[in-house]
Design a protein around this nucleic acid. Structure first.
Length: 425
RNA sequence: GGAGAGAUGGCAGAGCGGUCGAAUGCGCAGGCUUGCUAAGCCUGUGAUGGGCUUGUCCCAUCCGAGGGUUCGAAUCCCUCUCUCUCCGCCA
């Protein structure tokens, strides 16, 4: 959430945030709400002060056996006024909060202005696209041939967009997240967590999924009001909701595996085939909490950690710096990593690496403390990595002429030493 | 699922409808002491919001959350949430 003080001190900054993120909101109405809010508070507090003083006096008089009915009568009226003002204060504050929750984070320094993904800037490329002596196949054909995904029965079990891995496919999936977790914990200094996959509404608001994107989320009914997490970012960032973290303990590096659930309502009809766009997928996520002054350095380190995943798997990829209009609601700056998949001849987004500055921390109320000094921490996160598309990139990049797929070396220990997956006869 | 207990400051734990932002202990910070010695003594110690004279200032709000009664609520009433204990069921 944005700093409410900005309605007073710098509404232009909020207007600029909306403009850069291509969101249309009435910031001026927030300015007048904020002004009205302070008026109401002043009136209210002076009445409350009066009531406190007079009530005290009434108490004293009664103790001495004196009459106080006139004062009591007057305070009854004051009490009614207080009640009216409190009601107004509540509506003004909730209107202000509703507006504030829908204002996007201001893009950070060094973010190119733009409208859509067309305007993202490719800033780096790594690895070489593989060359084949044959026509490379798309992954869904490979999956079929290798007998590692049962698409048909996946649909039977749940519906389209739900993956049923089989045999070595299931094991490869397991190898991937085990490998990523081991990499981050042993070489990158992250603490591993294993979170619940259902969270409550406060958690979803804390990281910014709600209220704006409720339609894209799966939730439980029967009055539970719980949500299936769209990413481990939600439970992991909310670990420290409503807490103070000692400055000496920062930065904190957390990592977690989770399944991720997304309706992706708006994307229906796109990439329907294979593993490219699914409603449930596995992912390893990295989350950081740090001091404000270090967050952009931490972003670069985080980026390096994510890139290590791709490099160690030997997957060619490019790095995009997202333009203002393509940044997510909560992000101030974001890199996307796209692995190249020769079978579909596309770059596939496998990771997003973002700095949220204090936007999430303000919503989730995560603060640091250093003696008397306190403030909101900065939060960051990055996939490291999202599995289905990583799986696609592996299958398509490592496919051989004989129909087999070679297993990247770093994964072999997790595959019982297996070097390749052979096509079924 | 059944029965019961509870939710108070960093923690523990008191609290008759007014003098309670809240005793006491611990912890923490500062100071003093250095013949009660791996110690003693003293003082201080929350959050949020508002104001302007921006001051180690004033005011308001906060005792799980939300309502109600009252001139006045941590204290009385209602609703909700959560936690704990026992029983049952269960991977």
């Amino acid at each position: 959430m944005i700093d409410l003080r900005l309605f007073r001190d710098n509404p232009e900054f909020l207007k600029e945030a909306c403009k850069l993120k291509k969101v249309n909101l009435d910031i001026d109405s927030g300015v007048s709400l904020e002004n009205r809010r302070r008026e109401v508070i002043q009136e209210l507090e002076s009445l409350q002060g009066e009531r406190n003083a007079v009530s005290k006096e009434i108490g004293a008089r009664k103790k001495n056996g004196e009459d106080a009915s006139a004062e009591m009568e007057r305070m009854r009226a004051v009490g009614d006024q207080i009640k009216t003002l409190e009601e107004e204060k509540n509506t003004v504050e909730s209107d202000l909060r509703t507006l504030a929750l829908s204002i996007p984070n201001h893009p950070g320094p060094d973010v190119p202005e733009g409208y859509s993904e067309e305007d993202n800037v490719s800033i780096d490329e790594w690895g070489n696209k593989p060359t084949f002596s044959f026509e490379p196949k798309p992954h869904w054909e490979l999956c079929e041939a290798l007998d590692i995904v049962d698409f048909k029965r996946g649909v039977k079990l749940t519906g389209s967009g739900f993956i049923l891995y089989k045999g070595l496919g299931a094991r490869l999936e397991r190898s991937l997240f085990n490998y990523f977790l081991d990499l981050h914990t042993t070489e990158h200094g992250y603490t591993e967590w294993f979170p619940p996959f259902l969270v409550n509404r406060d958690s979803m608001v804390g990281t910014g999924q709600l209220p704006k994107m409720e339609e894209d989320m799966y939730c439980t009914d029967k009055g539970d009001d719980l949500f299936l997490i769209p990413t481990a970012e939600v439970p992991i960032t909310n670990i420290h909701r409503d807490e103070f973290i000692e400055k000496a303990d920062l930065p904190l590096y957390y990592t977690a595996y989770s399944a991720c659930f997304r309706r992706e309502a708006g994307a229906a009809g796109k990439d329907t085939r294979g593993l490219l766009r699914v409603h449930e997928f596995n992912k390893v996520e990295m989350v950081k909490f740090c001091m404000p002054e270090t967050s952009y350095d931490e972003l670069e380190k985080l980026r390096a950690n994510a890139e290590t995943c791709l490099r160690n798997l030997g997957l060619p990829y490019r790095v995009l710096k997202l333009c203002s209009g393509d940044l997510s609601f909560s992000a101030a700056k974001c890199y996307d990593f796209e692995a190249y998949a020769p079978g579909v001849d596309k770059y596939l987004e496998v990771s997003s690496c973002s700095n949220f500055e204090d936007f999430q921390a303000r919503r989730a109320n995560v603060r640091y403390k250093d003696g008397k000094e306190k403030g909101f921490v900065h939060t960051l996160n990055s996939s490291g990595l999202a599995l289905p598309r990583t799986m696609v990139a592996i299958l398509e990049n490592y496919q051989q002429e004989d129909g087999s797929v070679v297993i990247p070396e770093v994964l072999r220990p997790y595959m019982g030493g297996l070097e390749k997956i052979e096509a079924k006869k």
